[in-house]
Each structure stands twice: as C-alpha cells, then as structure tokens.
C-alpha cells in the first residue's frame, strides 16, 4: 500500500453536549489512494464536517486509526498536527478565507511562512508558480477586493497547493459561486487531479460530485455508499452552458 494517502479505520468521534453524548462518527473506514478525486457527500448532520475536520488534522478522533501518508496521526499533539497540516494538507474553504488587504502573492506565500525550511526566495518562486498553475499570473499583486469570487477561490487553491501537499481538502469549495464559475473551479480541480494531485471534495451538490471519480456517502455517522463514478468533464459542462450566460 505504498500509494495510500489516507487510511482510516473504525473512526469514531463523540461530542459531549451538556449531559448527552452526540456520536457524530460511528465507525468510519475507508482509504484514499494517490491520484484519486473523491467526493465526500452527505446531508447536514451526516458527519461530513466532523469527517473533514479529522481528515484535515484540525480535530482528533475519539477512537480509531488515521494514517495520512502512512503516518498514524490520531494521537498526535496539537503542535505536531500543525506541522502535518503545514506540510501534508492543502485547504480550500467555501468562503475562500483570504486575508483582507493582502496581495494574492502574499496570500499564497502564507503557508510557507510557517515552514522554517523555506527561504524568502524559494517562497516567492513557489507562490508565483502556484498562481501560474491556477491561471492568475496576471493578478499576483491584486487585492481580494479587486478580484471576483472565482478569482479569489483560485488564489485560495493556489495557497492550498503551494506547500505541495499529499492531499487537497476542499470544503464546499463551489458553494459561494454561480454555476459557470463553479464549473470553472471544478475544471481547475480536474486539471490539478490529472497532474497527480489527490483531492477530497466535500459537497452536498450531486452535480458537483459528478465531476469527481469516486463518491463516499455519509449518513448518520456511517458510510452508506462508497463507489467509483463515471467522471464528467467540467470543461465539457462549461462549453455546454448557454452562451447567453456570458453577458
């Protein structure tokens, strides 16, 4: 299993709310191999946010095993988890989470600032390269307020890939965008996936999940469905959109 990026085994997560115990995850097991593009789906309350927090090393499971890049991290200290997030994970959020009044290039440099092994010159070069990959080489010095939603999300994606993570975790990354821009972003994710990036994409929209290659369905803290899907091309969907949208 040399190319297993994520392997979880009997993952459970309980929350104590008042005197009650809420069992958000009730024993989830699956694996994500290198190069996969997985959609994690589920309604609200299904446990997909909890799942994503644990996968993103922001939260620790109550019990179970979690291997990321063959490292068992479920018992790691907060500081070690920070290092894992910094080196192995790239986050893309629904609301972009860009810093206000900060140029795109500096937003993208941010994860590398927390990595003591990357010098100033390398940091700048890698940030420029990441922005080029998302097609924003013309807008490196633009502020978030000078960019559209789609462009802001591209900056966020550049920030997620700049540290060369083993997996990109996207949380409803198209939730704030219109259909055309959503498809553009999905097309970008597909291109990143084709170039070898492993992506886990949390969404509740089936038409967005259709652009991935595998769907993991969660319901009430358990996996109810885990199967490969026929990947639709986001570029084709984009071309099929009526031209009138393009005012």
């Amino acid at each position: 299993m040399a190319n297993s990026i994520i392997r979880i085994n009997e993952l459970k997560r309980n929350f104590i709310v008042g005197s009650e115990t809420v069992r958000a995850l009730r024993g989830v097991s699956f694996e994500i191999q290198a190069g996969e593009f997985v959609a994690i789906m589920g309604t609200s309350g299904s446990g997909k946010s909890t799942m994503l927090n644990i996968l993103g090393c922001l939260d620790k499971p109550t019990s179970g095993e979690y291997y990321i890049d063959e490292i068992e991290v479920s018992k790691f200290s907060n500081d070690k988890l920070s290092e894992i997030r910094n080196k192995k994970i790239g986050f893309v959020f629904q609301s972009y989470n860009l810093l206000p009044r900060t140029a795109a290039i500096e937003q993208v440099e941010l994860p590398l600032l927390y990595n003591p092994n990357v010098g100033a010159k390398e940091r700048r070069e890698r940030a420029e390269e990441a922005l080029r990959l998302v097609g924003l080489e013309e807008r490196m010095y633009h502020l978030p307020s000078q960019m559209s939603g789609g462009q802001q999300q591209r900056v966020a994606i550049a920030r997620a890939i700049v540290n060369d993570p083993v997996i990109i975790l996207a949380d409803e990354a198209t939730g704030n965008l219109d259909t055309r821009t959503s498809y553009e972003i999905m097309s970008l994710f597909q291109r990143l996936n084709e170039s070898g990036k492993t992506i886990a994409f949390v969404t509740h929209e089936p038409d967005i999940a259709a652009f991935t290659s595998r769907v993991v369905m969660l319901r009430d803290g358990r996996v109810t469905k885990d199967e490969p899907v026929k990947t639709a091309s986001a570029q084709a969907a984009l071309d099929a959109l009526p031209a009138s949208d393009d005012y």
Partner: peptide
Amino acid sequence: LRMAIGAK
C-alpha cells in the same frame, strides 16, 4: 486560517 495552514 493561519492555524489551518500550519501555525502552531
């Protein structure tokens, strides 16, 4: 965000 991208 800073914590998510690796700030301790």
